[in-house]
Simulated scan of single mutants.
Amino acid sequence: MPAKRKRKAQRLCVAYETSDGEKSEGADLPVVTVWEPQEWQQQLTNIRIMRSKKDAPVDHLGAEHCCDPSAPPKVQRYQILLALMLSSQTKDQVTAGAMQRLLAQGLTVDSILQTDDNTLGKLIYPVGFWRSKVKFIKQTSAILKQRYNGDIPASLAELVALPGVGPKMAHLAMAVAWGTVSGIAVDTHVHRIANRLKWTKRMTKSPEETRAALEEWLPRQLWSEINGLLVGFGQQICLPTHPRCQTCLNQALCPSAQSF
């Protein structure tokens, strides 16, 4: 039986229309451009200027400032995760106060597991949803002791699998505790500001939807910066209600400024 002849690979030729309407072959495939918002670079520069003093609550009360610097790295990572769990729907000042009370008791996986629910509730009150957080903290601490030798997981998937740990907390834990940028951490401030500046192709309905939309176009080297930058901006100027547009350097560039 005669051997099969190899088929010659066909070269893809693309026809395109020239200025005089004639077709030409052999042109390169068109370059697909990634969507990006108008004037976002200038808007970002202005936000950096407005945030240059680093004097927003997040700058000195964020999770990275709520751990004991003298504790072993493993314990610090656990404390950072707990601070992030407490911070959900809670002002930074309230979270910091709760962390101070916990640290005064000696904050480790074992100490939390040995603390009864009633005492733990009194220590973290008045953080938002404190009763649920007591339950989540106990459950997560037990898992960390059983599966991770008292440390926290070093992967996003394992972090979000922990009770009471959402995507924003997990991305921040990866960045702050492990020094790894796994994605953009989007909370209510980032979600609100991204929509006001039209940094998404269309209005997004949730922080997770906003995260996916931002990651489609925002250069990866900016991912680690954007959370702290926009959170502080949202705490000081781009407030949820009655934003201080008159003091904002982006007033003329903001698509939403006229609506306030």
Rank of each mutant, 00 (worst) to 15 (best):
E208T: 04
H171I: 09
C67W: 10
R147S: 14
S70F: 01
E22N: 13
G97V: 04
P243H: 01
R220A: 04
G106Q: 11
R131Y: 12
A71G: 02
V31D: 09
G183F: 09
K91Q: 11
L239Y: 02
A154H: 15
A96V: 08
G183T: 07
S256L: 00
M1H: 08
I143M: 02
S256R: 02
N195R: 01
A3S: 12
A96P: 04
W217N: 03
T140S: 15
A96K: 12
V160L: 07
E215S: 09
I47L: 07
H171V: 09
A3Y: 11
A15L: 11
S141I: 12
I226W: 05
A252N: 14
A3V: 09
F136K: 08
D55Y: 07
Q41C: 06
Q251T: 12
T33N: 12
G179W: 08
G183N: 05
C13N: 15
D20Q: 09
I237R: 05
Q105K: 15
E39R: 13
L239H: 02
V190D: 04
W35G: 05
C13M: 15
K8F: 06
Q105H: 13
P240A: 04
K91T: 06
S19Q: 09
V32L: 15
I193L: 10
Q76R: 01
D68T: 00
A173T: 15
T108I: 13
A83L: 15
E39C: 11
A15F: 04
V75F: 01
Y16H: 14
D110Q: 14
K4T: 12
L253R: 14
N250R: 05
F233W: 00
F136V: 05
L229P: 08
P37D: 03
Q246A: 08
A27P: 07
T33I: 10
D59N: 15
K201H: 03
